[in-house]
Design a protein around this nucleic acid. Structure first.
Lengths: 211, 211
DNA sequence: CTACTTTTGTAGTGATCGTTCCAGAAGTAC
DNA sequence: GTACTTCTGGAACGATCACTACAAAAGTAG
């Protein structure tokens, strides 16, 4: 066994608690006092176990992405059809963003939307991870366009930006109190915007195609 | 003329500057030092002119809603057709959220997404204003359903939640660096989700209608 | 037991938070 | 000019920020 006085708390459990606090309040608004209070441990214990606030957040973020936020990667990786991937992505997001006894929305999306200038690097880091996700979506659409799952003139980048925006909007709606059913309906509406395959022409009695 | 030493700065100009700072950093992350630095005035002058930080934010928010954010109300009020209203709403949002020399996105949406527990009332206030906007959208859709502009089975609440989510997503995308053109393409994609009027059946080669 | 190692709670670091006191500056009124 | 009113800049308020020094506590090793 390890020498010295043993740690009085479970490190993984504490990290899980830190995820919840950062998820709820974001990076800047989460104070050390808020964390130590929620985790039931003293500040020196927290610093000894995780380093400083930034390191703790980054570790919490990493764990979040491999657990609560992993459904996005899974949907893209496990669904060969692009349409089904997006369908599953949106529907699972509707559930994930409104899970009971958990903070609303997505930590990656909301944790650093307003931050002070000295936390700008944290915001940039989250933005970069979001950009990677959007690029994965765009690549999926580009591949689907090449295999004929999407019309040849599909703008993969634009379509990925749309569904990324819908996810961010769903997260915001969840934070605003939307229910799971509300988010599911948003997801279904977003799926109606899926590009038409050849043979089916522009829908609706609209003049939307102005460009 | 008024007695006493005259104010050395223009109050409206200072309020405009405060809008910019709150717009950029949000409520919590905007410190008084950040404000006095940006406005070029001392803290006592700011407090004498606007009260405390909360009152200044609320006044800045009010002015924002009657200027930069007024396009949303205008689109709904001035466009009799619901489809055209949403079309105008989304397209103007794409421009408004990426205006050069102005902060990205929407102050109403982003200014209090992560906030400390003691600013929870500010967050609740913004949420309430967003809810009023969503309800206005929903009412517009309900009226359009009654006049036949939308299918009789349209869920006005769900459709409003969708477009509200798209607006919030566009704001987030703008903050993530999206260009005006990017947002315009998101807007056009969202418009493709507009419900089909009678006679045109479910679109696409999908099995989306699982419910 | 003693020696050693690591964690703990208390208390305190300097910095910054929102906010205000106060003395002097800058105007009007007479 | 003097009297009066209002605003400004500097300095400071207590509270909180992220973070840590320190010594007692709690374990293992011998």
């Amino acid at each position: 066994m390890r020498k010295g006085r043993p740690r009085s708390f479970d490190r993984d459990e504490a990290l899980e608690g830190a995820i919840a606090v950062f998820w709820e309040h974001g990076y800047d608004a989460t104070s050390i006092a808020l964390l130590t209070n929620a985790l039931g441990i003293g500040a020196p214990s927290l610093y000894a176990a995780f380093g400083d606030k930034r390191a703790l957040f980054l570790e919490a973020l990493d764990r979040y992405m491999r657990t609560y936020g992993a459904f996005t990667e899974h949907a893209l990786a496990e669904e060969p059809d692009a349409r089904h991937a997006v369908q599953r992505l949106l529907r699972e997001a509707a559930a994930a963003y409104t899970r009971p006894a958990r903070p609303r929305g997505c930590l990656l999306i909301t944790a650093a939307t307003n931050c002070s200038p000295q936390s700008a690097d944290i915001a940039a880091h989250l933005r970069e991870i979001r950009a990677v996700g959007a690029r994965a979506l765009s690549d999926k659409f580009a591949a689907a366009t090449r295999t004929g799952q999407l019309p040849p003139d599909t703008d993969a980048h634009a379509l990925a930006a749309f569904y990324a925006a819908v996810l961010q909007g769903m997260s915001a709606q969840a934070r605003d109190g939307a229910t799971t059913a509300d988010l599911q309906q948003i997801a279904e509406a977003a799926l109606r915007a899926w590009p038409q395959t050849a043979g089916q022409e522009a829908v609706g009695s609209t003049d939307a195609a102005t460009k």
